[in-house]
Amino acid sequence: MELWYTEKQTKSFGITAKIKQTLVTEQTAYQQLEMLETEEFGNMLTLDGMVMTTEKDEFVYHEMVAHVPLFTHPCPKRILVVGGGDGGVIREVVKHPEVEKVTLVEIDGRVIEHSKKHLPTIAAAFTHPKVEVIVGDGFMHIAESRDAYDVIMVDSTEPVGPAVKLFEKGFYEGLSRALKEDGLFIAQTDNPWFKADLIRQVFSDVNEIFPITRLYTANVPTYPSGLWTFTMGSKAYDPLEVTAERFHEIETKYYTERLHKAAFVLPKFVEALTKK
């Protein structure tokens, strides 16, 4: 008998993976959490039926969330990660010597605990001396912060459940207040095949608040459609104007200096989502 897991990405389309065993199934205070061992992608974390990360392809998403903004900002000392309870983003952030402190605010502590046990290569930086972990509401943390961070990374789930408010204009206004006068943020903003309206609305909202707004993409095989977008709002620094001397050697599998700017070259139908 074969066991398969299917994520229904729309009412009529999904992605499926053959499962070796179920490692965890738990209804937390916030969401349905499952940790599955798959044949193709290794251990997989799902929340409310959606794939969050897998051992095989996680580096794409985590590197593109972290390194694009950190190489854009010339002096990223204080970093905030909202969500990201698997630990992949903070693992990438601490590779940058300029970073003095990275604060991770994850609403669901069970995500952190299960990731430490079943995704150890992803959750490797939780004990790093530069890392502060807060189990709490990232939305409220942002609302209570002023001029506190150089870079904020919003590593949220898709806009369902507790993550819905992280895709609203008021949240982006809060991000602007929480950032220093030359700060910038980046947020995952879903895929252009199934969530075009969401991307268009987020880009429009961010563009009304930040003087520099950019959209970039990466290929994440286990995410809906495989083509994933990220939106950056910046008060001062344009990721397309980063000069060669800003880059330094770090260990990566996906991100490169050349890819930094190439990621902002959008397919025509995706670029159209950034136009009024």
Results as ranks from 00 to 15, higher is better:
Ala66Lys: 06
Met52Cys: 14
Ile142Tyr: 02
Glu271Gly: 15
Arg78Glu: 14
Tyr172Ser: 13
Ile209Met: 01
Val111Asn: 04
Gly88Glu: 06
Gly136Glu: 05
Thr256Gln: 02
Val81Phe: 06
Thr53Gly: 10
Lys101Ala: 00
Thr229Tyr: 10
Gly233Arg: 00
Arg146Gln: 15
Arg91Asn: 07
Gln27Thr: 13
Asn191Trp: 07
Ala163Asp: 12
Lys195Met: 14
Val265Arg: 11
Ser156Gln: 05
Pro192Glu: 09
Thr127Asp: 13
Ile152Leu: 07
Met64Val: 07
Gly83Arg: 01
Arg91Cys: 01
Gly161Pro: 06
Leu33Thr: 02
Ala66His: 02
Ser115Met: 02
Thr6Gly: 03
His96Phe: 04
Trp228Glu: 02
Leu240Thr: 11
Ile199Asp: 09
Ala263His: 08
Leu266Cys: 04
Ile79Lys: 01
Gly83Ile: 01
Tyr254Cys: 03
Glu132Met: 05
Thr157His: 05
Leu23Gln: 10
Asp182Val: 00
Gly233Glu: 05
Ile250Val: 08
Tyr237Phe: 10
Lys235Ser: 06
Trp193Lys: 12
Val206Lys: 07
Ala66Cys: 00
Ala263Pro: 11
Ala263Leu: 11
Thr189Gly: 09
Leu23Met: 05
Phe203Lys: 03
Glu26Val: 14
Pro192Trp: 01
Met232Ile: 14
Leu184Trp: 09
Thr103Lys: 07
Ile212Thr: 00
Tyr216Ile: 00
Val94Trp: 09
Leu70Arg: 13
Ile122Met: 01
Thr28Met: 10
Gly84Val: 04
Phe264Cys: 09
Asn219Asp: 15
Asn207Trp: 12
Leu266Trp: 00
Leu47Gly: 06
Asn191Gly: 12
Phe264Ser: 10
Pro221Asp: 08
Val164His: 15
Ile112Trp: 02
Thr10Trp: 01
His114Thr: 15
Pro162Ile: 03
Asp137Asn: 09
Ala196Pro: 07
Pro267Thr: 04
Phe139Gly: 12
Ala187Gln: 11
Asp57Tyr: 10
Lys20Glu: 03
Ala262His: 02
Lys268Ala: 14
Val111Gly: 03
Val154Phe: 08
Lys180Asp: 01
Glu37Asp: 01
Asn207Arg: 12
Val133Gln: 02
Val154Thr: 12
Leu215Phe: 08
Met153Tyr: 11
Ser156Trp: 13
Val105Gly: 07
Asn207Lys: 13
Lys165Met: 15
Gly138Cys: 11
Val265Lys: 13
Cys75Asp: 15
Ala17Cys: 08
Ile134Asn: 05
His114Glu: 15
Lys20His: 07
His114Leu: 13
Tyr223Leu: 10
Ala29Arg: 14
Phe71Tyr: 02
Glu34Gln: 15
Ser145Glu: 00
Trp4Phe: 03
His62Ile: 05
Ser145Val: 01
Tyr149Met: 11
Gly49Pro: 08
Glu158Phe: 13
Asp197Thr: 15
Tyr61Asp: 05
